[in-house]
Every structure is written in C-alpha cells, then in structure tokens.
Design a protein around this nucleic acid. Structure first.
Lengths: 229, 229
DNA sequence: CGTACTAGTTATAACTTCTAACATACGCAT
DNA sequence: ATGCGTATGTTAGAAGTTATAACTAGTACG
C-alpha cells in the first residue's frame, strides 16, 4: 500500500510488460497459423523468444488466458477491417453493405485461423461468453448495425415476436433509437455471412469444386431486396 | 499372404474388434461432451475402459484417427436425423423443408460438441477435407437436395455464373437430373442453417438475450418465397 | 493340434502445462 | 546517489499427454 508504481501502470516497467505481451501474442499467432489451436504451445513460444518455459506465466496466467486474449484481438481486428471498408461517404448505402460483406469475407480468408478462433468456444470449461468476449463480439455487431441503419430507416417498423427483446438489447447497448428491425437484419446478415465464410474456410465449397462468390452476392442482394422483419 | 482370415474380415475376431472400436468411440464422445476436443485423452479413455494406455493404439492409429472417425459418425447421424424428419409423404413440400430445418437445428442443439466437431478442420496438418470426410459431408447435402427438389422443380432454370460448375458437381454425384438451381438453393440453405446454428450454440444469441427461433423461420420463409438462383 | 496373428502388457522417450523455490536486476522514492 | 521492493527470469519437478518398442499371453483358424 505504498506509493510505488506497479507494473500495471504506465511506468517504464509497465510499458516493457505490454511490449513483451505483444511479442508473445505475435509468436503465438504464428504458431497458431500453422497447426491450429492444438499446436499452440507455451513452451515452443518461449523457445522462440529465447526465454525458458515458465517465464511466460509472468505475462499470461495460463494457456487459455493467452488464447482468450487472441480472440479479443481478433474480434477487434475484424471489426476494424469492416469499419475501414465502410468508412467515408457513400452514394449508395447498398454498396456500403456490399463492401462490408466483402471486407468480412476477405478478413476471414486472409487469416482463417484467427476467424476460426472467434467461433470456437474459447474456454470449454467456462461460460462460453465471459464478459470481455461478449463485449468484443459486440464490436463487430456494431458495424453491421451502423451500416444497416443507413440503408432502410424507412423499413417496416416490425411487429414480430422479436421486437421486444431486440429493442431491449438495442437500448442496453446505448442505441435506443435503433429499431428492432435493424437488429433483426444485423443478426441475419451476420448469420448469413458467418455461414458462408465458415463453410468456405473449412473447404466445403472447394471440395464441391465451386466458387462461392455468387452465393455471397445472392445473399446480400436478397437482404437488400427482401429484408427480414 | 496365406489364406487365413484377418481381423478386418467378418470373422469372430473382426466382430469383437468392431465392438471394441464402438466402445472406445462411445467413451470418447462422453469425454468430448464435457471439455471439448482438447479434453479428449486416449489415456483417460483407456482408464475408463479398464485397459492400459497403449492398448487403444491397436484400434486407432492415433488420436486424430479417432477424432476423424467421430466426425464421420456425426455427419452420418446428422444426415440420418434430417432424413428421418423428412421421410414419408408430405402434403406441402414447404412444410417438409421447415421440418428439415427444425431437425437440423435440434440435432445441433442436442449435441453441440458433435456439431462443433463437424466444422472444425479435422486434422490440422492434413488436407481439410480428406476423402472420407468429403463423402460424409455430402450425405448431409443429399438430404437438402432431395427436399429442395420436391419444392420447386418449376423454379427458374438459372442462367447465373454458378450454373456450369454446379451442374458438373450434380452430375458427378450421380444426380445429373438435378438442375443447378437446386444445388444453389441447397448450398444457400446449408449456409444459412449453419450460420444460425453456429452462432446459437456458441452462445452469441444467448449473450444478446434473444431467442433465434424467429430468425430460423424468417430464413426458411425467405428461401421459399424468394429462392436464390 | 500347432502355428500365426492379435491383443494386451509394461517401459520409455519426448512432449505438454503449470507450480514452487530461488536469484537477479532494475525502477522508484527517499 | 542509494537502497528497498517488486518484477522478471531462472532451474527443478510434478503430473499429465501422445506415441513407440519390446515382450507376453491367448486364441481363432487351417
């Protein structure tokens, strides 16, 4: 309880700590890229970094903590990529939605191991969505919501059974203005994109010898012409 | 190279072998149910079965071989459940499609660990879809194709860019009659179901506090009213 | 009835995660 | 400038994993 600065603070030591954490995650990502989550070994990471085994436990409580951190980072990265692709001014909001879908797919294809990480129950023993993970996943949803809001604010105001819980959810996220319709469309969009991307990166389309690009276009067009709600 | 019967044949020894393999898989599934693929340990399985460690290697080449077997079984089970739910005579083929979606979702919710197994790259080092796995996954597709064939044989004959490869794929599967439209709809159906189911079993909907049932209904209805192609 | 093959055993190597006990070195406040 | 205290790294080791090797016992089949 003395006035000394601890490692969590912004002191020199804290900065070094953050830097090492990043280095560890970088190496871990490389190991994860070839071999999947199974192949991520703290020991191997330590060896690459030139330190010996248990040193890493000063930076991450355990292997799962490192994985969870990677998941959160991945959610942020995906959301950032989608935001970047949809930023700026757009004549046709429909084009903006298409750009969002394209960016989502592109990110997943570029780093399939990280995308896979997102949807694997992060800690099989724990609650599937512990707090930080829920928050991280919502970042991605926010982008979808924002893009869809620009498309059809004039859409049907919805009277479906989903309205109540979705309106509540929207309110809880600080966007009480967002109608339930938007939320329905956002989740539908997310589910469609995830379905296609997931099948694509697992090779299910490739094994059938077909390029799924038209399927993506079809789903987006469908969402634009006959939106749910 | 003598005339003796080997363990693979239908002899007494072969039957015993098959039975033990099944027992192993059963115990493995139980371990997999709580703890995920990470928690599946051959040693632990052996201990449960009352045999000691390396004995299991007489029945499965390695841990991944066992996992692959479980994946194939899961594909067959899922397909069987969908077939059973759509068997018999149906007045309205649309209802049959709804029954298919319901069965697909129900199976996944009943055994999320097995569903997760399906879409996890089975052997990270190998080709994502080695031959037996591709075959197994096609079983599930066949059900979707068959159901969709009954719905709108009169649908638009499709002139999209997907027609050529899909027709080829259909022909290669011994259903040259199936138009490319059907294949497009089948893959779209599969992707939509998988997207929703995947988000549901990972808790993404639950974390938002909403029941995705209407989303399923919406997607199926949409597929019926404005089918892709 | 004997042979050849199978199914089990133990021992062992090379890994893994993670804890404990200990040494060092460095930043911070005095 | 100097020393305290913390953070960081080290080695040792426990308990677990996959997987191989060498060996033993049993049994189905010709």
């Amino acid at each position: 309880m003395d006035g000394r600065a601890h490692a969590g603070g912004p002191g020199l030591r804290g900065r070094f700590r953050a830097q090492v954490r990043d280095e560890i995650k970088q190496v871990a990502l490389r190991q994860l890229a070839d071999g999947g989550p199974q192949a991520l070994s703290l020991n191997a990471v330590a060896k690459v970094l030139g330190v010996s085994g248990p040193a890493l436990y000063r930076y991450f409580a355990n292997r799962d903590a490192l994985l969870t951190d990677l998941v959160v980072d991945a959610y942020r990265d995906l959301a950032a990529a989608c935001e970047a692709a949809t930023a700026g001014a757009w004549k046709d909001p429909a084009d903006r939605l298409r750009a969002l879908a394209k960016a989502y797919r592109a990110w997943a294809l570029e780093e399939p191991h990280r995308y896979r990480l997102l949807f694997r129950a992060p800690l099989y023993g724990y609650d599937a969505h512990s707090e930080p993970l829920v928050q991280a996943s919502q970042i991605a949803m926010n982008v979808a919501v924002e893009v869809l809001e620009g498309i059809a604010a004039e859409g049907p105001v919805a009277g479906g059974e989903l309205e109540a819980p979705l309106a509540e959810w929207a309110a809880g996220r600080g966007m009480p203005g967002a109608a339930a319709v938007i939320a329905v469309r956002a989740t539908t969009l997310w589910a469609r994109l995830h379905g296609l991307v997931s099948l694509e990166i697992e090779g299910n389309f490739a094994s059938m010898g077909l390029d799924p690009t038209p399927l993506y276009e079809g789903e987006i067009t469908n969402l634009l012409t006959t939106p749910p709600a």
